[in-house]
């Protein structure tokens, strides 16, 4: 039996109320969206807030809408199941919906939210354990201790960003709308991250992610998400890669974006690799050759660490395999890519 720490629960009706409730106590408070990450983490003693600000009653944070130009606004409390099943989102942003479909299990996708997946805590096999387990080990750099068990002598936490939807949203140039004590702030998702596994975001946890804004895709844009995992359900990614391919009128690739996850503290864009695809034609040798080069470059740039479950050398061998398969799936308008 795992018990939650003692806390009080607040149920605000507006974003402004929620931010105020977060700031008005001296002790730690935490926002609660779907609870699929925070609750297990609290049960493991990783967070012991005095107050939980539950977001389920804030209408503004729900719903999916498109403006006249075709840009999407997705409320941060929209569940991963709703993202996965939304017909307009599936048409516009296939990689995002595929990534949402591969998160965990049906129940957790019914509960977990898109905002929560973006704001997911980083993960490490030395960190996501019970208090008893961590105590027996002498704790770790990320929580309660001073020693990194992944990198001997390491002074910087390398717990891995493990959010499936973040790389997909990165390839789509999504922006985030936060509510802060000094008003609303909008920032590109690409600017959110910092390479620190203890807290891999540049904003404090007291800022509230209200909505995600995803710009209209280019005409004929395609995308896919590939996820390496041990089981066909429940598991966090052992490696994940999102792809977006835009096409010119002649069928050649006019723009491309790749972003990997489950490697280090932040999602990892592969900009140089993506540039190799521009100007190539799917279905022709130029594209196949470029895919091979991209797969090899991805293997050079992506170095999985022994920070999450799964043999890291096997995960490294799978980097070119999943990069190649996901690129071909995106070009064919297919996906998601997973072996089970």
């Amino acid at each position: 039996m795992l018990r939650l720490p003692k806390f009080e629960v607040k149920n605000p009706a507006t974003v402004e109320e929620a931010v105020a409730m977060m700031m008005e106590i001296h002790g730690e408070a935490r926002f609660l969206a779907g609870g699929t990450d925070l609750n297990p983490n609290m049960k493991h003693g990783l967070f012991t807030p005095e107050r939980i600000v539950a977001l389920g009653g804030i209408e503004e944070m729900f719903g999916v809408g498109f403006d006249e130009s075709g840009n999407a606004r997705i409320g941060a409390m929209v569940t991963l199941a709703q993202v996965e099943q939304h017909p307009d989102l599936r048409r516009a942003f296939p990689a995002l919906c595929q990534a949402a479909k591969l998160v965990s299990s049906p129940q957790l996708r019914n509960m977990g939210t898109l905002g929560g997946n973006v704001m997911l805590d980083t993960r490490c096999q030395w960190y996501n354990q019970t208090y008893f387990w961590r105590n027996a080990l002498g704790y770790c750099l990320k929580k309660d201790g001073s020693k990194c068990h992944v990198i001997e002598g390491g002074s910087k936490c390398v717990a891995a960003a493990s959010n499936d939807t973040a790389p997909a949203l990165m390839t789509l140039n999504a922006e985030l709308e936060f509510a802060t004590t000094s008003g609303r702030v909008r920032m590109p998702l690409a600017d959110l991250w910092q390479a620190d596994g203890i807290w891999n975001k540049k904003i404090p946890h007291t800022d509230l992610l209200v909505a995600l804004h995803v710009p209209k895709p280019a005409a004929g844009s395609r995308g896919a998400y590939g996820k390496l995992r041990d089981r066909g359900s429940i598991d966090f990614p052992l490696f994940g890669i999102a792809v977006r391919l835009d096409f010119a009128a002649d069928g050649s690739i006019s723009d491309a974006a790749l972003c990997a996850v489950a490697l280090q503290a932040r999602p990892w864009p592969l900009k140089k690799a993506a540039e190799l695809l521009i100007g190539t034609h799917p279905g022709q040798a130029s594209f196949n050759d470029a895919v091979e080069k991209v797969a090899m470059l991805a293997a050079k740039q992506c170095r999985p660490m022994p920070n999450i479950p799964g043999d890291h050398e096997y995960r490294h061998l799978m980097v070119p395999v999943y990069t190649r398969r996901t690129l071909h799936a995106a070009a064919a308008g297919e996906g998601p890519v997973h072996h089970i």
Binding site: V9, N39, I52, A54, P106, Q107, M111
Partner: peptide, 13 residues
């Protein structure tokens, strides 16, 4: 009507 995990749902929500 939606399958949900009771172990990760706060009763207060």
């Amino acid at each position: 009507g939606v399958p949900t995990l009771a172990c990760l749902s706060l009763a207060a929500t």
